[in-house]
C-alpha cells in the first residue's frame, strides 16, 4: 500500500522536484561564480577581511530557495488533491486517515530533505575551496535556519491547503507565515534557541491531522 502511494506521489512530484533541484543548482552556481569573482577583485585577504570583520554574506542568494522549495512542493502535492476532491477518494481507502496523510507528507519530506542535504553539501564544498572551517560554519549556521524554515513552510502550507474552509485558511495563513518568518529573521541563535527551532520545525508536521480531520468530516 505504502509503495503504491509512494509511486503515485513520486509521479506527481517528480517534475517539480527536478525543477527545484535545477533552480538550486543555478543559484549555487551563481554563488560559486560570485566567490571566484570576489576573490579576484577584492583580493583574497580583502575578501576574508570583509567576511571576518564585517560579516559579509556572500551566500545570501540561497536564503529563500529552501522556502520556495517547501511552498512549491506543498502546493503541487496538495492543491490538485483539493481541487479535484481526489483526496476524498484517497481518504476512503481502508487505511487510517492520519496514517495516510503522514505517508503522503513523508514523501514530500524525503524529497525536501534530500534537496536540502544536497544544497548543504554543495555549499560546504564551494565555500571550502576558498575558506577555512570557521567561515564554513559562518555560512552553514544561517543556512541551517533557512532550511528549517523551508521544512516548516512545507508542513504549514500543506496544513493550510488541506483545511477545507476558506475562512479558516485565511485565519491560519498569517499565523503560519508569522511562524515561518522566525527562521528567516533570527540572526545568530544561541544553542537553546536553535534546538527549539529544530524541534519547532519538525513538530509543525503535527498540524496536518487537524486540517485533515476538518477535511474528512467536512466541517464547515
Amino acid at each position: 500500500m505504502y509503495s503504491a502511494l509512494l509511486y503515485k506521489e513520486w509521479l506527481k512530484l517528480r517534475t517539480t522536484f527536478v525543477g527545484l533541484v535545477l533552480l538550486s543548482m543555478l543559484v549555487l552556481a551563481y554563488i560559486a561564480l560570485n566567490l571566484a569573482y570576489y576573490n579576484e577583485f577584492m583580493t583574497p585577504k580583502g575578501f576574508w577581511g570583509n567576511v571576518i570583520f564585517l560579516g559579509f554574506r556572500f551566500f545570501v542568494e540561497i536564503k529563500y530557495i529552501p522556502l520556495i522549495a517547501g511552498v512549491v512542493l506543498a502546493l503541487v502535492q496538495f492543491v490538485p488533491e483539493m481541487n479535484l476532491s481526489r483526496l476524498k477518494l484517497t481518504l476512503h481507502l481502508p487505511v487510517e486517515e492520519n496514517k495516510l496523510l503522514f505517508q503522503m507528507m513523508s514523501i514530500g519530506f524525503i524529497l525536501l530533505v534530500s534537496l536540502y542535504v544536497m544544497i548543504t553539501l554543495i555549499m560546504w564544498i564551494i565555500v571550502g575551496i576558498y575558506f577555512p572551517s570557521e567561515i564554513i560554519n559562518f555560512v552553514l549556521n544561517p543556512l541551517l535556519l533557512w532550511l528549517l524554515g523551508g521544512l516548516s513552510s512545507y508542513f504549514l502550507i500543506s496544513a493550510v491547503i488541506l483545511e477545507p474552509v476558506w475562512s479558516r485558511r485565511l485565519v491560519m495563513l498569517p499565523f503560519a507565515l508569522g511562524f515561518i518568518n522566525f527562521f528567516f529573521t533570527s540572526e545568530d541563535p544561541t544553542t537553546g534557541l536553535l534546538i527549539f527551532l529544530i524541534l519547532a520545525a519538525v513538530f509543525t508536521a503535527l498540524l496536518i491531522p487537524f486540517s485533515g480531520y476538518h477535511f474528512k468530516r467536512g466541517i464547515k
Binding site: 492520519n98 499565523f175 509543525t204 503535527l206 498540524l207 487537524f210
Partner: peptide, 21 residues
C-alpha cells in the same frame, strides 16, 4: 487523540506567534 494533540499544537503555535508579534 491525534487530532486533539494536533489542535493543541495549533493553539500553541498561534499563542507563540501572537506573543511575539
Amino acid at each position: 487523540m491525534l487530532v486533539k494533540t494536533s489542535r493543541i499544537f495549533f493553539l500553541l503555535l498561534v499563542t507563540f506567534v501572537t506573543s511575539i508579534y
